[in-house]
């Protein structure tokens, strides 16, 4: 049986295709302004990649901020439900799930069996989400990958005063003018963002093991800063982290298809 999960975020659409519960294709396309169109495109590409016909997909589940636009999705789980389902499947002992995407950060506490016990969301603020690091890497004229990498070479901790992305941009510019090493600036940016995200996590409490998903999980500089901000806790980055929500949604479609 073929099922698909689509995560329609503010920046990207992630799609995961499962055959009998096993992933056979993953694709990412830009969200753009037409969510339904981009999601359709994501599904087309995933089907093409797996060598199957789109019509043969038995059930589709959509999650993410733009999920309501997808009328063809039989299930529309919340981001929390999708993340929890995905994390439980990828790493069953997980108790704390953190998902940091481009425009939102979420923390979920899981009980036995992957049940959601509590959750917290940082919404409506770019400073606590991937958009923050993106904006700062632009100010430093670096690619996101480069920005993440150099931050690991930082030798000095410098504080970032500005918490808001708009003000932090000017602060980064003045740090550049003051000839601060880019590595230290990048580290400061990651520390500032990790501080914000840690606030969200502390709201639900930290319980080991802690797992991290979402696009920002690929940023090793951020992961290091987040671990420090959470008091040195070990953070396990989930495999295919950016697809966490899509994978969870696909599993929810799979669960539903089997139940039906």
């Amino acid at each position: 049986m073929l099922v698909a999960g689509i995560d329609v975020g503010a920046k990207n659409v992630h799609a995961v295709l499962l055959r009998d519960g096993v992933p056979i294709a993953r694709v990412v396309v830009a969200s753009g302004f037409d969510h339904e169109g981009s999601a359709g495109r994501g599904l087309d590409e995933a089907a093409a990649l797996a060598g199957v016909r789109k019509e043969d997909i038995d059930r589709v589940a959509a999650t993410g901020a733009g999920r309501k636009a997808l009328v063809f999705a039989a299930d529309q789980p919340t981001e929390i439900a999708a993340d929890a389902r995905g994390a439980f499947a990828l790493f069953p002992p997980a108790r704390t799930v953190i998902d940091v995407g481009a425009d939102e950060a979420r923390a979920i506490r899981l009980g036995p069996g992957g049940k959601v016990v509590d959750f917290a969301i940082n919404e409506k603020c770019a400073a606590g989400a991937g958009a923050f690091v993106e904006a700062m890497s632009r100010a430093l004229e670096m690619s996101l990958e480069e920005f993440a990498r150099v931050s690991l070479d930082s030798t000095e901790v410098i504080p970032m005063n500005a918490q808001c992305t708009v003000f932090a941009e000017s602060e980064v510019v003045s740090l550049i003018h003051a000839n601060t090493p880019p590595a230290d600036i990048a580290r400061a940016v990651h520390d500032a963002m990790a501080g914000r995200v840690s606030t969200v996590v502390r709201r639900i409490g930290i319980e080991d093991p802690v797992v991290l998903g979402g696009g920002t999980a690929l940023n090793a500089g951020f992961v290091k800063s987040l671990s420090c901000a959470l008091g040195g806790v070990a953070i396990q980055v989930l495999g295919e982290a950016p697809y966490l929500g899509a994978h969870g949604a696909a599993l929810i479609a799979w669960d539903a298809a089997q139940g039906a």
């Binding site: 503010a10 302004f33 425009d103 409506k124 603020c125 770019a126 958009a131 904006a135 808001c164 992305t165 708009v166």
Partner: peptide, 18 residues
């Protein structure tokens, strides 16, 4: 709907497109 200036920026652009 977005209070955050960064997100309001992209919202403004999409409203113009709409």
């Amino acid at each position: 709907s977005n209070v955050c200036t960064v997100f309001a920026k992209s919202e403004a652009t999409s409203l113009l497109r709409a």
